[in-house]
Amino acid sequence: MPQPKDSTGTYTGIVYRKDADLKAWLAKRPREAALEPDLPIIDPHHHFWDTPARGTYFLQDLLADIGTEHKIVATVFLECQAMYRKDGPPELAPVGEIEFVNGIAAMSASGNYGPCRVAEGIIGWADLALGSRVKETLEAEIAAGGGRFRGIRYGVAWDADPVVGGHASRRVPQHAVMDKTWREGFKQLAPLGLSFESWQYHPQLPDAIDLAHSFPDTTIILNHVGGVLGVGPYRGKRSEEHAKWLANIKELAKCPNVNVKLGGVGMTSFGFDFHERDTPPGSEDLAAAWRMYIEPCIEAFGPDRCMFESNFPPDKQSGGYTELWNAFKRIASGASTSEKTALFSGTAARVYRLTKP
């Protein structure tokens, strides 16, 4: 498949199918019947956007993916640089994303679009590199969120290799979270009751460990099982890199303020080949591939600090929404009823202060 270009015409380095081709590809496999269809699910990680490189993904697109197979009762939106304000102070530009998503959440709350409470929780972005001055942005986002704003994500995914770099949506310094001014900005979160989404690649996990130790009163949510890389210089080294990843996951799990999202494994940066196949995979194939990252996280953190996530639409490159949740249910098939409740809804409800199913 050809590589997509961003709005400047530059190749992003990410190989993925665009809207029409993706729909045609997914249509090659009929949707599976949902396993355990009555199990309530809170999807704690998805996006909305409209960009030249990514295409369009709005409320109706998410609802079409959700369908009626699984019992998705609520969702959490994660920042993706969508609808920033065009005018005004640049530090307040990301407030526009909160306004945009809060509007979608209000549409969903009307009940006119089905029972799922879409974007019941909202995670935005604010420039922590501003230091303590970022408090103004955070307060503006709280106001714009209409009671739904829960925290921020500040992606620090970095790697020296240009192939890996093409998978990152922002350009940041190598050890951004270690910067003194950045940490002054980070200090503003806990007093405002806000959490932090930690998104980095797996070689950067030692920085995340240091951050968690340094701010034990701040709730941290590790995105995408720690951001495993399987492309560029990491391709063909899955066993070797898995051992390094696992050692850091076990160390991070010692920090009680850290929770982990089980998902994101469908992104092309993980190095699996599902997006290159002529026919999309079924849930058995997905479960077999993803188990090696998900099960160790559950063992290290425990179900009460783990939550399954769709990460749609990025993970859509590896298969359909129904198949993704079926894969998770296959992986968790040996869990008890209370453990499944935590993994599929309870942890997310606690961390993001959402309505319990």
Rank of each mutant, 00 (worst) to 15 (best):
Y154K: 15
P280G: 00
R153A: 13
G320A: 14
I72C: 10
A160G: 15
G226P: 07
L63T: 09
S283P: 11
N326Q: 09
A348R: 01
E241V: 15
G88V: 10
K261Q: 11
E299H: 05
A20E: 05
L205R: 01
A24E: 08
E323H: 05
P40H: 04
S239I: 13
T337C: 03
N326E: 05
G96W: 02
F186Q: 01
P216T: 12
G151V: 11
N311Q: 04
F301W: 07
F58P: 00
G145K: 03
G236S: 09
L92N: 08
R133K: 15
R330F: 03
A327N: 08
H275I: 00
K86T: 14
V258P: 02
G266T: 00
V172R: 15
F196A: 12
P203E: 06
N311A: 13
C297I: 03
G166I: 04
G131N: 01
G166D: 04
G9I: 02
D210Q: 14
V95E: 10
M267Q: 01
D21W: 00
S318P: 06
F215R: 14
V177Q: 06
W325I: 04
E284N: 05
P313D: 07
D87Q: 14
I152F: 09
E323Q: 14
V225L: 09
P30L: 05
L324I: 14
T137K: 01
F328I: 09
T68H: 13
A342E: 13
L92S: 06
G124L: 10
D285E: 15
Y11F: 13
F196C: 11
T10N: 09
G155L: 09
Q3H: 01
F77N: 13
W25A: 08
F58Q: 15
G114E: 06
L22C: 02
E299Q: 14
F274G: 00
M83C: 14
R85S: 14
R85M: 12
G236T: 12
F274Y: 08
A289R: 08
H70G: 09
R277V: 00
G124W: 12
R353M: 02
L26I: 08
P89Q: 10
T12Y: 01
A144Q: 05
A342M: 10
R238G: 09
L62C: 07
L35C: 04
P115Q: 11
P40S: 11
